[in-house]
Computed example of a mutant assay.
Amino acid sequence: MNMNQVQNEVLYIEDDEINLALMRHIFLKKLPSLKLIEATTARQGIEIAKERKLSLILLDIGLPDQDRFTALKEIKSWMVQEPTPIWAVSASVFESDIKNGLNAGFEKYITKPYDVQKIVKLIKNTVTVGTINTN
């Protein structure tokens, strides 16, 4: 695979089945040109991220198998050459939580429950068919 080739795959690392089902629905109905890949543990998500060239990673920061920002640090540690945008997804909605997430290195911080229109727009503005928008 050409490493500059974008696969238009988005990885969602989330342990809650309801949130996974909602994101599946969003991708099926609103983002059909993108492929949603799912992981239910941080470890599984990290392994998938290592194996694939992803357009975006959505990472729940409340996973039971890793503390808040460990998975982000691990992914970023080996993703130096071609970084993939990594967004926090969290039910923690306090301004301090959002600030801590952004300071930890997440490009965006998405709060639960999702504002479907907002998340679709954000993803479309970040990932377009065949390219990554770096603006």
Rank of each mutant, 00 (worst) to 15 (best):
K29Y: 12
K29I: 04
L31M: 06
L31K: 01
P32H: 03
S33Q: 10
S33M: 06
S33G: 01
K35M: 15
K35C: 13
L36C: 07
I37T: 14
E38L: 13
E38Q: 13
T40R: 14
T40M: 13
T41G: 07
R43S: 14
Q44I: 04
Q44R: 11
G45R: 04
I46Y: 00
E47V: 09
E47L: 13
I48M: 12
A49H: 02
E51T: 10
E51S: 14
R52W: 05
K53P: 03
L54V: 07
L54C: 09
S55W: 01
L58R: 01
L59M: 11
G62F: 03
L63F: 04
Q66M: 15
D67R: 03
R68Y: 00
F69C: 10
T70F: 04
K73W: 03
K76L: 07
W78T: 06
W78E: 04
M79I: 07
M79F: 07
E82P: 00
P83W: 05
I86E: 01
V89K: 02
V89H: 00
S90M: 10
S90P: 15
S92L: 15
V93C: 13
F94M: 14
F94S: 14
F94W: 10
E95R: 12
S96D: 15
S96V: 12
S96E: 15
D97E: 11
K99H: 13
G101H: 05
G101M: 00
N103T: 10
N103Y: 06
A104T: 07
G105V: 02
F106D: 05
F106N: 06
K108D: 15
Y109W: 11
P113V: 08
D115W: 08
V116M: 06
Q117T: 12
Q117V: 10
K118T: 08
K118W: 03
I119T: 08
K121R: 08
K121W: 01
K121S: 11
K124T: 13
K124E: 15
N125T: 06
T126R: 08
